[in-house]
């Protein structure tokens, strides 16, 4: 039976082929409404997702076995990501954690240590920290401000919350022996940010995504962090980004 979810302020209708997706979307299910986008997928679309899923799994050293239910979850996500730029939202790869109501996003290639670093923040701040989305937050640009949005697609640890919070800073994370952070400009940040941004297949939606990326770089602090896994890494990154240094 069809159900509705809401993420990044947008409602979607899903008519599932398999059981998994409804369970996966728990916490985001909403009442049926009039203003929605239908992101139901066909068995053919689900099967077409398989090769891409396997390629991504190989790159991240994960299992390459996917059930049809798992592939449906990925296919619906792709459909939502293709739709979003039309309503001022794009899909981003990073770990978004909020402290005192402001979101900070750490981004890097898979395996660099984004989740490890945001886990250090949660240890440092305890109840003051809220995990927005540990892997693929939607970023909404509205009235010149950027917001990080929770969604059911929140990484292998399923870590995130159904919230929409203003973004204070975005941080490009690199491994280092010591902990150092630098403020960078949009020119330095854009190529990496673009690498970690979902690229819609249509030129029109891609052009909108570029505009939204500029909306992000125009409205938040941009940083490059070299860090190890010690608790001090979280002190260094938070102090600089909080104060805008």
């Amino acid at each position: 039976m069809a159900f509705f979810i809401k993420t990044a302020g947008q409602a979607f209708r899903i008519e599932p082929n398999h059981d998994n997706i409804r369970r996966y979307c728990e916490g985001y299910i909403c009442e049926p409404c009039d203003d929605f986008c239908d992101v139901s997928v066909t068995p053919e679309e689900i099967e077409a997702e398989r090769q891409g899923a396997i390629d991504a799994a190989v790159a991240e050293h994960r299992s390459t076995e996917f059930s049809k239910g798992q592939l449906e979850i990925l296919t619906v996500h792709r459909k939502i990501a293709e739709f979003m730029p039309g309503v001022g939202v794009f899909l981003f790869h990073g770990s978004a954690v909020a402290v005192d109501g402001e979101a900070y996003i750490f981004t890097a290639k898979s395996g660099t240590g984004k989740s490890t670093h945001s886990a250090l923040w949660r240890r440092k701040f305890g109840g003051r920290a809220v995990m927005v989305n540990d892997d693929k937050p939607f970023i909404m640009i509205k009235d010149g401000k950027a917001y990080a949005c929770g969604s059911p697609w929140n990484g292998k640890h399923r870590s995130g919350s159904n919230v929409i919070l203003p973004i204070k800073s975005v941080c490009l994370l690199c491994r280092g022996d010591t902990n150092e952070i630098y403020k960078i400009n949009s020119r330095d940040a854009l190529p990496t940010l673009f690498e970690q941004t979902y690229r819609p297949s249509s030129p029109d939606k891609l052009a909108r995504t570029l505009g939204l990326l500029h909306g992000l770089t125009d409205s938040v602090g941009l940083y490059r962090l070299f860090c190890n896994m010690s608790p001090e890494a979280a002190d260094v990154s938070y102090e600089a980004m909080k104060e805008g240094l």
Binding site: S186, L190, P200, S202, P203, A207, D218
Partner: peptide
């Protein structure tokens, strides 16, 4: 496709184009 703001002009490619980077 391109986008221009106050700071820079960027160009990227859509679809299955071989070029996956960004021209600043």
């Amino acid at each position: 496709v391109t986008h221009q703001n106050d700071n820079e002009h960027v160009t990227v490619a859509a679809g299955n184009t071989e070029f996956t980077g960004m021209l600043l």
